[in-house]
């Protein structure tokens, strides 16, 4: 662990009943870093992300955010989550709010920032993702790809220190995956710190600073994209990459 770490997982353990989902995972995320988590379904990628924003409590080990332990009982999960933007596989936009209100609900009601400021920032974000014309539409009027882009903008509206992205293209039509990945690449180029669970190997190779391979709750191997994809060391990594190719 170094001082520039934003988020560190230290030997994290998590079980659901008898099912041990994370068996001592250690991983660091530094500012402006993009780390991609790869691995088959059920390998613990999503659980790891959910532990980071305290949607799950861990059974062992520690997680630190800006050097502060999240297992400290004095930590307020709401304050932790305001530092971390989360994007889900199934978008989870609020269907009763317009696109614009989806973006402002967090900054206004969680951060208590004035509505006018928050609104103009939200509109800037919509311009950035190319959906400013849909600001007053409800989410069900948008395509899946547009909805996921709005969900990413909703997370960014909180001006988080890092983004957690949980298989954000897995629920999308193949034809809509591109627009979402393009947006993520732009964010990566702009220096956004991101921890991305993904099944898109080509995308991981392009944007990731580091790739980590999870297998049955164990972080088997991590390294630069070329280390992992061109020269995987561990047999489990080799087998997984063979199967997804």
């Amino acid at each position: 662990m170094t001082s520039s770490d934003i988020l560190s997982f230290i030997n994290v353990r998590k079980s659901f009943g008898a099912n041990e989902v994370l068996r001592g995972v250690s991983l660091e995320l530094q500012r402006h870093n993009v780390v991609c988590l790869i691995g088959s379904s059920g390998s613990g990628k999503s659980t790891l992300l959910r532990c980071a924003n305290m949607l799950e409590t861990i059974d062992g080990g520690d997680i630190t955010l800006f050097g502060q332990s999240l297992t400290d009982p004095r930590v307020d999960p709401d304050l932790v989550r305001r530092q971390i933007g989360t994007v889900f596989q199934s978008f989870n936009l609020f269907p009763h709010l317009t696109v614009l209100d989806n973006l402002t609900v967090g900054p206004h009601y969680a951060q208590r920032r004035p509505l006018e400021v928050v609104r103009s920032e939200a509109i800037e974000l919509l311009v950035r993702i190319g959906l400013e014309s849909r600001a007053h539409d409800f989410p069900d009027r948008l395509s899946g790809g547009q909805q996921q882009r709005v969900a990413i903008a909703r997370a960014l509206a909180m001006q988080p220190a890092l983004l957690l992205l949980d298989e954000v293209t897995s629920a999308l039509d193949p034809s809509l995956v591109g627009e979402v990945l393009d947006l993520l690449s732009e964010l990566a180029d702009a220096g956004t710190t991101m921890l991305i669970a993904t099944h898109e190997m080509g995308f991981a190779r392009d944007v990731a600073d580091r790739v980590a391979f999870l297998d049955q709750g164990v972080l088997v191997e991590s390294g630069t994209p070329s280390e992992i994809f061109d020269n995987p060391q561990h047999p489990a990594t080799q087998l997984f990459l063979q199967r997804v190719r």
């Binding site: 949607l55 709401d78 989360t86 989870n92 609020f94 609900v105």
Partner: peptide, 17 residues
């Protein structure tokens, strides 16, 4: 749906909000 609650809590909204 539970996803709505997850999304809201992830934004840092309190339980009451």
């Amino acid at each position: 749906p539970n996803g709505q609650i997850l999304a809201a809590r992830s934004l840092g909204l309190t339980q009451q909000a």
